[in-house]
Simulated assay, not measured.
Amino acid sequence: MSQEQSPKVQAATQAQPPKIEFPCPDYPIKVVGKNADDFQSFVVEVMRVHVPDLDESRITIQDSKKGTFRSIRMFITATGEGQLKSLHEELIASDRVHIVI
């Protein structure tokens, strides 16, 4: 008897994102929050706790059309799942951050 997977199982298996191999250079992180003069410095301060070698020259900032929100995009060398989880939890715990991608 063949042990072929059903089409649903195959689709679910194929839909899973690829595993990240650590360290992972150029790992993109985008933080979106309320636009304020010190939002970038707040995000960078949190990032430095988890990514001491953060390259600030690679940070890009974009404000929303009405200027209410600001997105900050960075590239880091991700060292492990624990680092990414801690970073995400600390950023999202702030009432200033709406989403971390």
Rank of each mutant, 00 (worst) to 15 (best):
S94W: 04
V97D: 02
H50K: 07
P25N: 02
T79K: 15
S57T: 15
Q16Y: 06
M47Q: 00
I72G: 00
Q3A: 15
G33D: 03
S71I: 00
M1C: 08
I92A: 05
K30H: 03
T68G: 13
I59N: 03
I101P: 00
K65P: 06
Q10M: 14
Q5A: 08
Q3L: 15
K85G: 03
E81I: 12
S86H: 06
R73E: 12
L54G: 00
F39Y: 09
S94A: 06
P28T: 11
V97I: 07
F69K: 10
S64K: 07
D95G: 12
A15G: 06
E81F: 09
K8Y: 07
V49E: 10
V97P: 00
Y27V: 00
V32A: 09
K85P: 01
E21C: 02
I92C: 05
V44D: 01
R48G: 04
S57D: 11
D26A: 14
Q10E: 15
S64H: 06
V32M: 15
S2P: 12
I61D: 05
Q62S: 13
L87Y: 03
S6W: 01
Q62H: 15
T77F: 07
A11H: 04
D26T: 08
D26M: 12
Q83H: 08
K65L: 14
D37K: 13
Q10R: 14
D55I: 07
S6T: 13
Q10N: 13
G33R: 02
G80L: 05
V9S: 12
H88V: 01
V100E: 04
E89C: 05
I92E: 05
T60A: 09
M47H: 05
T79E: 15
I29C: 02
L91P: 00
N35W: 05
C24T: 08
H50L: 09
I76T: 01
I59T: 09
P52Y: 07
F42C: 07
S94T: 06
F39D: 04
K30F: 05
K65D: 13
S2L: 13
Q83L: 05
D53A: 09
E90R: 11
I59L: 10
F42E: 04
P7L: 07
V51D: 04
S86N: 14
M47R: 01
T79H: 14
V97G: 00
K34N: 12
